[in-house]
């Protein structure tokens, strides 16, 4: 499948309530010794908009303060959903399982 089929899709919970849109898809690198596979770990859901964070949800970017506050405000309430909590992919929509967990969307800073 092509990733942009999933990006910007609507996200709904098991009861059909709209939670937001897919703002990003998270992958985890795995495989020894240098990571040769990128496996889907989850999706980032943003309740208000699927527009870009412009990088401000990352720990590597928090200045200028005005833009940081503005972007965080626009994307407030964003959360990560694990792959295991995804129930179903449909055209333009992703359904989550009952009892899905909201996780922190912050991307951990990694040593480059």
């Amino acid at each position: 499948m092509i990733l942009s089929d999933v990006l910007r899709s609507e996200v709904v919970d098991a009861a059909g309530h709209r939670l937001g849109r897919v703002a990003d898809v998270r992958f985890r690198l795995e495989g020894p010794p240098s990571a040769s596979r990128a496996r889907m770990a989850g999706i980032i859901v943003s309740p208000r908009t699927s527009a870009s964070f412009l990088g401000y949800e990352r720990s590597t970017l928090d200045r200028p303060v005005i833009l940081d506050r503005l972007l965080r405000f626009i994307h407030r309430g964003s959360f990560l959903v694990d792959w295991e909590d995804i129930h179903r992919f449909e055209d333009g929509r992703v359904r989550l399982r009952k009892g899905y967990e909201r996780r922190s969307a912050t991307l951990p800073s990694d040593d480059e």
């Binding site: 703002a23 990003d24 998270r26 992958f27 690198l29 795995e30 951990p108």
Partner: peptide, 15 residues
């Protein structure tokens, strides 16, 4: 590339 590292597609791969 370190195994275990997390990468966001839209932000770090696409474009």
């Amino acid at each position: 590339m370190r195994a275990g590292r997390v990468v966001d597609a839209e932000f770090q791969l696409i474009d």
